[in-house]
């Protein structure tokens, strides 16, 4: 489903970071572990099509995303890739439901409230559907972020330090939900983290 080859990147033109090749099938999951500054986030941005690597290719399904133009890449990302960030941000002027409806629209799916409600129920947050996102707790916000990554039924879900701001209890819950939902949607799941609490939960690990 996702396959990288020979990815290299450098910010200053001198210090090249060479990333290991990744190859995952539909429904597989993987943990990318590493300390701060090792280029974890860079790799995630490259995988998610948020930046282009200096070298190498990223293939998602049959599409080589390194070859897509700017607006084609925007469309592809909205439809096929769900990304969860360390700190969730939302459109502050909109409610949880409106944020998710907007995401469906941007991902090219028809608006479907009942789908969104189902996802919110599974994530145990449906009672907050009509709240503004800024009135939610960190854990709740992170769950809405997961919902956002799921609304367009992406092929690949990428999560960047999704648990770093959460306590142990919330961490377990969030990771459980992520795994469950990825499995349910048959999506490939990649989690980038330095959080050792997650280590034993994933057999498939790459250390950077």
């Amino acid at each position: 489903m996702i396959k990288t080859e020979n990815i290299k990147h450098s910010y200053d033109g001198k210090n090249n970071i060479q990333f290991p090749d990744i190859s995952l099938e539909k429904g597989e999951k993987m943990l990318l572990l590493g300390q701060s500054g090792c280029g974890k986030t860079t790799l995630l941005h490259i995988l998610g099509g948020l930046m282009q690597p200096k070298n190498g290719t990223v293939k998602i399904g049959d599409t080589n995303i390194s070859e897509l133009g700017s607006s084609a890449l925007d469309k592809f990302r909205g439809k096929h890739i769900g990304i969860i960030f360390q700190k969730p941000h939302f459109v502050a002027a909109l409610t949880v439901m409106e944020n998710l409806l907007l995401n469906q629209k941007l991902g090219g799916s028809p608006p479907n409230k009942s789908d969104i409600k189902k996802i919110l129920e599974k994530l145990n947050i449906s009672h907050k559907a009509n709240s503004r996102t800024k009135n939610l707790s960190q854990g709740e916000q992170q769950r809405v972020a997961i919902a956002r990554a799921l609304v367009n039924q992406p092929d690949v879900i990428l999560a960047d330090e999704p648990t770093s701001a959460l306590d142990d209890k919330n961490t377990d819950e969030v990771i459980d939900l992520l795994e469950q939902q990825a499995a349910e949607h048959n999506a490939t799941l990649i989690i980038v983290t330095h959080d050792n609490r997650l280590k034993e939960r994933f057999q498939n690990r790459i250390e950077l």
Partner: peptide
Amino acid sequence: SRKYELALLRVSGASRMW
């Protein structure tokens, strides 16, 4: 104050023109 919001809209599939 909305720059993350805008970046996130891009992540979600919004084009520059949008």
